[in-house]
Design a protein around this nucleic acid. Structure first.
Lengths: 216, 216
DNA sequence: TTCTGCCAAAGTGTCAACACAATGACCGTT
DNA sequence: AACGGTCATTGTGTTGACACTTTGGCAGAA
């Protein structure tokens, strides 16, 4: 069973992702209610949920707005991701089965081949799949929910904004294999370090892009 | 300005902390609404916020319940806290000013003296103060909000439940000084390791207590 | 006795209207 | 012309009623 507020939550999330509601845009309950042909009640709940995951900021009696992250806040986001995804990687090294790791390796290689065939302009779902696989395999549902939920939502908006997605795909792939080797060696310490470095590099790229955009 | 749903959120949080609403208890919108003399609307929002921070679980059309964490989920909580608080400690080592560190050391010592004077049965706010100070000093508002908000709320319920608060106060104090020394040495790496070990020890104590309680 | 299907009770989801706070324009004063 | 106060407008907070879903018990059949 899915309620109206669920639907509205998803739809509004989509509007934010697509840029239809860019950072800083006002979120008017009545407007949303009319657009979707429902009353304001479910809209309120959806907006509150968006506020809960940090995508919308709101004060009592003030208009709600799509959050507009400063470069510093983007940095904070990546620091948090670095900590959590590093820990997830360490846990995965201890908890993934050998069979899981073999399947993982096979999927990683076939994803690379598929991307190569499709050319450089195809959508690249494989990057997040790599991270998501490890996160889920960590066996820590709470970390997974945070990384794949709140943080992912926010980072997704700013990755799109900065266009910093494609660039590093070759280096990223090499780093992914390095991490995978650490997982297979059951070296949690190393796997954590590698993942943290990997995330930190992505962070540097995005923040640099944002600075350039600010300057331009 | 504070709205009704804000008030209800805080009050219900208090009811959960105090044990009046223990883990597993049903959260009935109409009952809460009548108790506080308001309509169901603000109650719904408050319950949704509690759901948002993970203190209440809810499915459409199902009664809401105060979450009842399994020992495994408590472990997950501590793993996440270890990762985040470790990172916060590393950042604090890089970002705290010398003056901050001096004040911090003085406060830590005076808190110990106060606790010694008050005897072993006085409330011990100093433990969390230590952690909170470092977390805030990390300069990462997002990590701070997570640790001092969501995670703290949940851990607080289970620390109370397990009664594992007082026990380690002497060891904990020694570990706190060790961490402080690392901060003053500006050794982020070491500070992070020490904090992670410190949290991990607390985790082991709480999970062991919970197991004992389960057995008894 | 046990199982199945139905029914009433309880509880949540949704709605439309009303109450209150904030914003911005208008007007009189200095 | 610039400043400060007043008021309509806009939008959020709150309410009570109605619609829908779930739940638990009851009656009847196997």
């Amino acid at each position: 069973m899915t309620t109206l507020s669920d639907t509205l939550f998803q739809s509004t999330l989509g509007s934010i992702y697509s840029g239809e509601l860019p950072p800083g845009a006002e979120v008017n309950e009545a407007v949303l209610a009319e657009r979707f042909g429902v009353s304001r009640g479910p809209v309120r709940e959806a907006v509150r949920r968006l506020q809960g995951i940090g995508l919308v900021s709101r004060e009592p009696y003030m208009r709600a707005m799509v959050v507009s992250l400063s470069p510093g806040e983007v940095r904070e986001l990546f620091e948090m991701r670095e900590a959590l995804e590093g820990m997830a990687c360490r846990l995965a090294a201890l908890r993934m089965s050998d069979a899981d790791l073999d399947r993982f390796a096979a999927d990683l290689e076939s994803a690379r081949l598929a991307r190569q065939d499709a050319g450089p302009h195809a959508p690249a779902p494989s990057d997040f799949d790599f991270h998501e696989r490890i996160i889920v395999a960590s066996g820590n549902g709470r970390i997974a929910a945070t990384l794949c939920g709140d943080l992912y939502h926010l980072l997704r908006v700013y990755r799109r904004r900065s266009g910093a997605v494609r660039e590093r795909s070759d280096e990223a792939h090499a780093e992914h294999w390095q991490i995978l080797r650490a997982l297979r060696a059951r070296d949690g310490e190393l796997a954590e370090s590698l993942m943290r470095a990997h995330v930190a590099r992505a962070s540097r790229q995005v923040t640099q892009r944002l600075r350039e955009m600010d300057g331009a």
